[in-house]
Nucleic acid binder design. Sequence first.
DNA 1: ATGAAAGCGCTAACAA
DNA 2: TTGTTAGCGCTTTCAT
Lengths: 348, 348
Amino acid sequence: MAATMKDLARHTGLGLATISSYFNGGNVREKNRIKIEQAIEELHYEVNEVARGLKTNATHTIGVVIPELNNTFCTEIITGMEDILRSRGYATIVCDCRTDAALEQEAIEFLTRKRVDGIINMPVDPAGSGLREFSKAGKPVILLDRRIQGLDCDCVLVDNRRAVNEAASLLFAQGHRNIGIISGPREIYTASERLKGYADAHKEAGIPVQESLICQGDYTIRGGVSGMISLIRRNPHMTAVIATNYEMTVGMMIAVNELGIRIPDELSLIGFDNLEFARACCPALSIVSQPTMEMAKETASLMLARLGVEGEASSGPEVKYLRTRLIGGRSVSGPLPGAEERKAVGGL
Amino acid sequence: MAATMKDLARHTGLGLATISSYFNGGNVREKNRIKIEQAIEELHYEVNEVARGLKTNATHTIGVVIPELNNTFCTEIITGMEDILRSRGYATIVCDCRTDAALEQEAIEFLTRKRVDGIINMPVDPAGSGLREFSKAGKPVILLDRRIQGLDCDCVLVDNRRAVNEAASLLFAQGHRNIGIISGPREIYTASERLKGYADAHKEAGIPVQESLICQGDYTIRGGVSGMISLIRRNPHMTAVIATNYEMTVGMMIAVNELGIRIPDELSLIGFDNLEFARACCPALSIVSQPTMEMAKETASLMLARLGVEGEASSGPEVKYLRTRLIGGRSVSGPLPGAEERKAVGGL
DNA sequence: ATGAAAGCGCTAACAA
DNA sequence: TTGTTAGCGCTTTCAT
């Protein structure tokens, strides 16, 4: 068995409280400090955070619930958060709920039993049922990337609507008139925002949205592949496509590769996330890049503030809105002569 | 404050032990069971795993220490492990040590204080100093992907040596004679194994290894880019390159893209990991694919066996060796003139 | 089947 | 500054 404070006390001849106060920054006589440190060394003592947590009702552990761990957007953010939180003494328990609302609910209950001090959630369930109980217990909840109607808590969001508006507007400016979009599941907040941005750009350009150019994807690679193929089949005059998350961007690239479509001559493309992937595409892909590191920082800071560790927690819920960047590659064709004369896309 | 068992006891008029036994599968009279379940509902009771952990000296938490969370190879494995472990009631605390041995040591101490029931580690420090203490306390340690000299514990490895041997042999068979390799840090187990495989293939083919064709990379994208560029500069006669992990594969693709090198006409390529990325490359990249899902399963199973949860734990340390697959794309040129010559000679 | 009570390792109030 | 002591919420004998 591991050594306990009692062992340290016995070993040094000191009282329990003295040992405890040593660990909690209290004043300890110099020679006792040395004795304690010697005992720690000899007995290989390590504080038992479980016992401490029971007593103090704080576990120094944050639960993170996300739809999919195997997703660069998520892992980039988690990497950043974990880094900051751990440097402040907080562990993170990451639960990947496989984009399943029931598993998400289960994960939240699981974290509740583990008495985590706070939860950071990129929610799958748009109702956020599980979080309400947790939040009611007075523990902080931070929503990441996606909002939940009627749940008043801190939020770190990206201006997705503007992001896709910018992407589509760029394409319009280059003379494209028939722009396809591989959209995400309608019930997911970011997906609906991104689709709104697509509509906004059309409105601003005075061009009507064509239903056939909108493909409802599912945020997976496979969905990106099949979405791209069906878009191409349905729209011979389509000259450009926007994919609205990283996985579907990969899928889109797989599809054009396997169909042998030349980019940007036959089709212009704009993807999402993962700058490195974009650079590795040939030709380099133009993408909407989300500020994952800032998201990580903002989220961790909000959490630390709510925990009273550092920074000021505002009284009401805070919503942070971050901006994306449009990063140019070589996947968008230069100014086109005119939209009407576009020839049908080859390969089919 | 959250409800406790005491609250349940008071609320039902039962004793504490009865409540406890209800939760631990003991026999409880039917009508009392109903009363308890009602009380749980009304008071929103959730077991306090912290208290339970203090008493039982088991936290149902597994620590996972990896070099980099933002790395698909790692996240694919973690996703799989977390899935299995959580379904058995185990949480995982993931610590990303940023490929830094000191941070890794810190992470292990951190997990020790948190009294995790076991540690799964893809080690950065080839000495594994931190793990020895933990292991000595009788708690299970499982090494993932990389071995540590003189640390007797379960291990889940991939036959990296054979993997790169196969890749290089394929290139030799296609007639390539000057094959470059972007290798990893020498002190990392997998990197040195992969380089050995490269040497093995040369030996088998009866071709001497040329030092200038070996580029010492660092397992990062950036390192892959610069490694590729320097390989090309130094070796005008080089006709093929193998990149030995996913990040450097991405870097390699970025480099050939930006240098405008035509694949496979000017250069044949073989990458590592991430089948989806390989398909999205143009032309599709041939790759060595590691069995991440099986690694996850084997690792989780070993851990569960050691914890006595399911399966049999063998008395001594177990080492699982898994095989890679070589997945063909279009990035390797067909038989070169030299290949036919070789075939004639070799009788193939 | 159920209840009473001890104690897991720690913190914190109080006393010395 | 240091020691004594009472819990934190749970499990687990040991009675009943």
